[in-house]
Design a protein around this nucleic acid. Structure first.
Lengths: 333, 333
DNA sequence: GCCGTTCGTCGAAGCGCTTCGAAGGGATTC
DNA sequence: GAATCCCTTCGAAGCGCTTCGACGAACGGC
């Protein structure tokens, strides 16, 4: 059972190899009758173009690299959603996805690009000072980053507008009349790593609170129950009258609610809580949380679109910020 | 800046193209001096073989497909660890990984195989009656499954030995002197989906309990706090004297501890708890949980090894069960 | 009725690599 | 000194596909 080649299809349909190719690619006009005959043969023989040959001849592999930070400590559900939407969207553009881990580093990127294994790169979780960024600038292959490095000039970056997300939360609480609010953030290591999004959320939150003339504080927080409990307690003790809490730490969301319960605070009676997290997490909590969602799917889809546009030689904006959306549920009043 | 080809290297080193190829592949003896000259040229020019051309000529893409169940509801951390170890291990064998989602179905597998995009397939989360299994049997390309379909004949399957895992938990509790124990399992949908691992755990647990002459019960359980709380309550109410609990539901682990706390049971004073979950989850809980870990990394590594062996034409066992390991921590006594 | 077009199709030249058979040149053997 | 062998290296033939230039036929304009 030798594999079927384009020559087999051509012979079966009684046309030239090039005609088959043109039918399949649509790059030249082919008469309806011939086209149909070819397509019938393709189906009859179960023909699938050989990816290697196609890549060699056309200089396009129809594969993009997805570089994920496959280390522990990431926000897994979001990462998963993101990966899914990247794969799905890429397939819509007739591309496949090569999975790479961030720890292959710049060399790995260089390898897949130089070997023409992939046509373009999608990097997630880019850090402020990322060793891969200089390489990306030099690469002929286009790339799209999720997240922002210190200097995004010459790159294409996509991300949720975290500053707006932080601001939205503060706005919402301020609009409800809260005058003393706090943000419970990611583990401090996240801030130190300089991924950027944590700071930007905090900045947006703080600025919005200032604009509303509302007192605001913030604290990083680890993800274990005990740490969350301690952090919540400190916030309550240090800031009497605190009545609004923004949680930007998906893993801690459940613990925060439990801690508030244990400390005798009712949600939303005594304390309004807004989370920045995926919808499913917010919905599963009790009470269901008012939340700003991280639109992982949108980010993935948008990133792939931008990459495809670049592959087509189109110009794309350097920076794309996705608008956050706040959903009011039962945890704020 | 045209890309460097093997011909450029050959010219630069003053040898024939084929000589360069043989130096790089090691498939024929080349004198040390020539080899060195070629390698120097490779480095000097920054040569990277073109993947498409290589695949076309050698009929090997050096890429394997990783098919992940990228739908919600999976055990994400485990999936991630698994994916990471697959990518890392594949790289050690000089292979890359093409990421696919399960929802591409059999057609997707057929496509990547027929187009020679990949040399082999790795499927995760295979179900008892999986539509892709018949296809895999017919495919020329070798494949390895994580999980077991109803009839694994003619396939290569890897998984944690869940029956042993369930048994280990029961053994441990029985050895500690507990006479009435229960298993709190996955959401019932998991059992209904027939993924197999849930049933196998339960079977191992039940059988081991019987062997020890210990009374044992089991209940599926959803992942929300309320559901977990309700399930725990039912177990306690229906089976007075229950003193050992096995939790095979990673997402519920934290809730179970909280529920026991709320219901006035001390761990391990009143109730010993064993979890079947990744180590990090067990360690993060308080008290730290005695647990049987799901060795996701081992599974990934082993799966890739088996696939590479098959690609080399070696015979491999149809079934590989990875031995579970129980770690005693602070939740059992 | 002749010429310039357009349309549909074909043939052939690569794309960059692997691999097979063979050639050149010692070294070894009788 | 001719015959044989082994060790290195080379040349050329593809692998299956895309794409470019060209060609024949049908067509309309004058």
């Amino acid at each position: 059972m030798r594999t079927v080649t384009i020559a087999d299809v051509a012979k079966h349909a009684g046309v030239a190899v090039s005609t088959v190719s043109y039918v399949l690619s649509g790059k030249r006009a082919i008469s309806a009758t011939t086209r149909q005959r070819v397509l019938d043969s393709v189906r009859a023989l179960g023909y699938h173009p050989n990816a290697g040959a196609r890549a060699l001849a056309s200089k396009r592999a129809n594969v993009i690299a997805l570089v994920l930070p496959l280390r522990a400590g990431m926000n897994l559900p979001v990462l998963m959603q993101f990966a899914t939407s990247v794969v799905t969207t890429a397939r819509q553009y007739d591309h496949d996805v090569l999975l790479m881990t961030a720890d292959e580093g710049p060399d790995g990127l260089h390898r897949v690009a130089a070997s023409a294994l992939v046509d373009g790169l999608l990097l997630m979780d880019v850090e402020i000072h990322d060793a891969r960024v200089p390489l990306l600038r030099e690469l002929v292959e286009p790339s799209v980053l999720i997240g922002f490095p210190a200097d995004p000039a010459g790159l294409t970056c996509v991300d949720l507008d975290f500053a707006r997300a932080g601001a939205l939360c503060a706005d919402h609480l301020a609009d409800l009349g809260h005058r003393r609010i706090a943000l419970l953030g990611a583990p401090s290591v996240v801030y130190e790593r300089g991924t950027g999004f944590a700071e930007r959320t905090l900045a947006g939150f703080t600025e919005a609170a200032r604009r509303h003339g509302v007192e605001a504080w913030a604290r990083p927080c680890e993800e274990s129950f005990d740490e969350v409990h301690a952090t919540v307690k400190v916030l309550l003790d240090e800031h009497p009258g605190l009545s609004g809490l923004v949680v930007h730490n998906e893993a801690a969301v459940g613990h925060v609610l439990a801690a508030l319960r244990m400390l005798g605070r009712r949600v939303p009676g005594d304390m309004s809580v807004v989370a920045i997290c995926p919808d499913d997490v917010a919905e599963r909590a009790s009470p269901a949380l008012t939340s700003v969602l991280i639109p992982a799917e949108d980010v993935g889809r948008q990133a792939v679109r931008l990459l495809m546009a670049k592959l087509d030689g189109q110009a794309v904006p350097e920076s794309t910020l996705l608008e956050p959306r706040l959903t009011v549920r039962d945890s704020t009043a």
